[in-house]
Write a protein that binds this DNA or RNA. Sequence first.
DNA 1: GCGATTTGTCGACGCGCGTCGATCACAGGC
DNA 2: GCCTGTGATCGACGCGCGTCGACAAATCGC
Lengths: 334, 334
Amino acid sequence: MATRDDVARLAGVSASTVSYAISGRRSISAETRERVFAAMRELDYTPNAFARGLAGARKGILALNYPLRDEGWSPMEVRYFETATQAAHELGFQLLLWPNAADDVASLTDLVSQQLVDGVIVMEVQWDDPRIELFKERGVRFVLLGRNSAPSGLTYVDTDFRESARTALEYLVDRGHREILFVGEDRVEQGHGPMVRTLTELEASARRFGVSLDRFAGPRTYGTGRAAYRYLAASGTPVTAAIVFNDQATVGFINAAQLAGISVPDDLSVLSIGMGEEAAEVDPPVTTVTPPVAALTETAVRMLVGAVEGHPVTQSEVLMDAPLVERGSVRDLS
Amino acid sequence: MATRDDVARLAGVSASTVSYAISGRRSISAETRERVFAAMRELDYTPNAFARGLAGARKGILALNYPLRDEGWSPMEVRYFETATQAAHELGFQLLLWPNAADDVASLTDLVSQQLVDGVIVMEVQWDDPRIELFKERGVRFVLLGRNSAPSGLTYVDTDFRESARTALEYLVDRGHREILFVGEDRVEQGHGPMVRTLTELEASARRFGVSLDRFAGPRTYGTGRAAYRYLAASGTPVTAAIVFNDQATVGFINAAQLAGISVPDDLSVLSIGMGEEAAEVDPPVTTVTPPVAALTETAVRMLVGAVEGHPVTQSEVLMDAPLVERGSVRDLS
DNA sequence: GCGATTTGTCGACGCGCGTCGATCACAGGC
DNA sequence: GCCTGTGATCGACGCGCGTCGACAAATCGC
């Protein structure tokens, strides 16, 4: 494997000239630079990542920290992985997968103290997330993909779930729905930020609009959707529309309703929060309010890289709207 | 951040003694070792990953290479990520996410020439996979999670899909089914190993058993399942059981059948290949033949790490059986 | 009891790169 | 003509660690 010295020798310059030709941190004559690049191409030279990391300030590696979960990741969530990786690559960084058992904050110190990474993207931020304190103490650069309860002063990118909730509810109310069921994950108590914010805003908006809002919660599974429909049928309330914050449950809910002879959307409207492209595959295609995953992740990566490379901070607290995509699972009663 | 020299000074030994105390590659008296460890604890010392990678042969990083796909990853597939990461951590390695556009072999060289990783775990191995040649040429250590058409001599871990297919078909035939539909992904032509092996064996077994085997193919979506059922209904063939190699399609298929008033399993039996734990969530719970993801991945990681650390090769070609889990979506006609 | 090992420890070096200070040629200002 | 830049390049050093050869002390065989 060729080294910097090999390139320098072939180009007839010193090793430091090669470095400066690559980094551009000192002026190099066009002619010399071209000779250096030619030599690099000829030798198929790529700087050694470890030597760079040791000598320089920048390591070229970002970590993606996320808590392990039994339910796996939905297509939506995998897109966070993929878009983060891609965004990092485009900026010249590698992305390290860094899962941790949800409660195991201790294991978080390992990677940090190895000094392997320039910064961390923190996913699945909890309402009261111990990782934030830890990273602050340790002086680790990090960007939250999500928010804790008091994110002011931190660097974060998140969906504006209050706005999304308002959008979703208003959409239904505008179409004449007055009795609405909310199906969410049972993680409000554990402080799941999106759920907390969504539920809070839904309840507030419901009061404001004077509509009734019932609630059913369960884990992120088909089964939860089916159970939610059973609950609805048993309760005997005149619910005309459901907001389901849970991609798998959305499918289960619709199927259970259909099997009971209920037509979606003729008899029952369904609006999903957080379901991705696969919503178009369901019968009927599901109307959704969904976070702009790619934009969120790209922004987070860009902000982290900006901090690593010492760019002046342009923005550190970003909230993005989740657009509503009409697909036909909501009926207009008005 | 404390360095090796700090530890040495505090422990009153030389720097190299600290290294040998950590690595154990030369004998150190118990007393000295204890002093060194005490100093490490006091200074909260962790060796710098970049210095290790530069000085030593081992870099401590493995890469997980997988082609990008639009459909995302099912819970099953995400488990590959998770179990691989965990297995790597347990052996003292970090795991780097390394996706590449499916046809973009050129981009594969980047990571390799940076010499950032000790080895690569190659996922989603195609029947004729260009990555294998590339890695061989470049002298990159790799383990296949899957197989190409001629894997002999390579290091791989894969599910024995021929055996799985035989198991699945025999299970149905034993229960009196003679007309069977196979729903798979439309990737046979593109050389998707599991599909090729499964389909080949299914057809052979069907001939052997003298049963009829129809086939429907589509991408990995709910919609494919629904389309498969429509195809089945339209064809008018007396199919009594379906084998669905496609987790999302399994759900779509069952739902479409149920909506058409067909009971699963009373009127139609369904057996899924490759569906994970979420099969238990469907109504009815789905009987599956599913690869042992955790065992496969762990073995692959262990083999790769073994090679990196120069252990003698104990096994390099591993096939594992996919166990059949009965859950009640298949009826016994006999 | 003495040479031959073995055990435990040390100092020095090199891995490949980023960067600082120094040097040199050359242009411009008075 | 001298002094002061300015642009282009070089050599040297250090990042933190793994490992090799050297060496003193302890152990062994007889």
